[in-house]
Design a binder for these strands. Structure first.
Lengths: 233, 233
DNA sequence: CCAAAAGTGTTAGATATACACCCATGT
DNA sequence: ACATGGGTGTATATCTAACACTTTTGG
């Protein structure tokens, strides 16, 4: 068990890593960012970007540092997914990982750039995920679940869209996150009635053409809306 | 930094601990289990039971082991709360903690018995918590929040009650968890209509007396109810 | 010309809220 | 007798769900 290294402790300690599940919406579908492993174990397999935690950073800071180093992504928001500590989850030895889920805006998607020990970095639609290294399947399922819950408690959906967006886009995003189809008319009615969205006035030229109306997130309206909901519980 | 111990590694590793927030309902109020620290740091202060993770156990297994050792409690269910990894959260040195929240039934409450380095173990009403050691305030707030969310997704409320319970008890439990008063008539109507509860037939003698009706959790009804809800999202 | 995508309104059912009185028990 | 706690029903408002046609654009 002892690696004969320079860091010695009185009691056993596990190695601690962080993993990042980054979500992005390309206008059609929800995607996550994977890197292809260039080293053993699982060489050639896809995995979530991550790495070892260092001495002077929190787990979240470690996650964001690794994400930036390996993929050049800096998220809009990052939340906790959970711990993954099965004794045999890493063939190299006992490693505990803590996973985070992040969201970025569509326009940030092409900032990706594989760095460090990431051979390649690529977006995958959440409905077409490849086989993953380690227990990253498990991490993925838990991350989607966390995203679904966050949808209700934080306005992450609006951090997954650009500043100005359309209702059909918002609906497609909900469909992918919830894995459930929504009725278009009811969906629109609900959001328009909620006060969460502010319409963006378009040129009359554009407006006359038959394209989707544009909206912006209205933080004040959102907070009021949430206050009403909370009373319900 | 090097403690000159027997466990040596090539790279730095943090110490990893687990903490347990155990919730129990005494019929009137929601309580959590604290132990009084018998050692420095924070000697004499109250804290959640927990300890260091060992080599052949997951974090959850470590949490349950420490809980049993320090307080003699074996919970009905345990869920994740989150990570606590501020660089200076433990004055003894860099320590990362992962917190779990557990629930037990009322009749298990008096099984507590302080063991190991727990000088004393005691239940505190969640509305009358003492000052806590480390960043345990933070852990507590996050644990309550996790419990509130679990209420919607898992039937933890029924693991916090004995097998047979009354609607007023259930309502008091909800009040404490949600921090919000409910209308008695609407609360009862909702639960009775939901199919989640099965009435327990009482003797006519008892029934004629004016005491609260008894119910039992109905798992099948709960699953049907949940299925309907999920479609709504 | 056809397919794909977006706009738009109504109705019926379900759910949520607000609200008051009586009875039994124990002090 | 009084305070506490528990049982019970109705009316209103809100929310949810189901449902079809027209317009525009691009191929």
């Amino acid at each position: 068990m002892e690696d004969n290294g320079n860091y010695c402790y009185k009691y056993w300690r596990p190695a601690v890593t962080v993993d990042n599940v980054v979500f992005a919406f390309d206008g059609k579908h929800l995607n996550t960012l994977l890197i292809r492993r260039s080293k053993e174990p699982f060489r050639g397999k896809w995995a979530f970007p991550g790495g070892f935690v260092e001495e002077n950073e929190t787990l979240k800071e470690a996650a964001l540092r690794e994400l930036k180093e390996e993929t050049n992504i800096v998220p809009q928001r990052t939340g906790e997914v959970g711990e993954f500590s099965d004794v045999d989850r890493d063939p190299r030895g006992r490693t505990i990982s803590f996973a985070f889920a992040s969201v970025i805006r569509p326009k940030q998607m092409n900032a990706i750039q594989a760095g460090d020990d990431a051979g390649e970095a690529r977006w995958f639609s959440v409905s077409e995920m490849p086989e993953l290294a380690f227990d990253h399947e498990q991490i993925f399922r838990k991350a989607i679940w966390a995203l679904r819950i966050a949808l209700v408690h934080n306005p992450v959906q609006f951090l997954l869209l650009d500043d100005i967006f359309t209702l059909p886009e918002l609906q497609r995003l909900y469909t992918d996150i919830c894995g459930h189809e929504f009725d278009r008319r009811n969906f629109q009615k609900k959001f328009l009635a909620s006060g969460i969205l502010s319409p963006v006035l378009q040129d009359n030229d554009e407006k006359s053409t038959h394209t989707a109306n544009q909206y912006r997130f209205n933080e004040g309206g959102y907070l009021d809306f949430k206050k009403k909901i909370i009373t319900k519980y």
